[in-house]
């Protein structure tokens, strides 16, 4: 997908563990892992709001658009 989730970068910058963040934003560590690994199909505004609040950042710090090659790579 052309949308890249940079959640792990922001987590490293804020020195916060997955379990801690999952607890703060009220989702399960398994769902956070889906989000981090880019397997998620969509993200709710409420989840994005909680993440931005917990990491004190902007949505653009977490989500990035990278144009795909024509062959999908």
């Amino acid at each position: 997908m052309a949308i890249i989730v940079n959640l792990d970068v922001m987590m490293a910058k804020r020195k916060i563990s997955s379990n801690e963040l999952a607890e703060k934003i009220g989702i399960t560590p398994a769902n956070l892992s889906i989000l981090k690994t880019g397997k998620a199909r969509a993200i709710r505004f409420s989840t994005l709001d909680s993440i931005c609040k917990a990491l004190s950042c902007q949505p653009s710090d977490i989500l990035e658009y990278r144009e795909e090659d024509t062959d999908g790579k």
Binding site: I27, N31, L32, I34, L35, K39, A40, R41, A42, I43, R44, T47
Partner: peptide
């Protein structure tokens, strides 16, 4: 259902 469960 799959779409819903992959919406975080």
């Amino acid at each position: 259902k799959e779409e819903n469960s992959l919406t975080i």
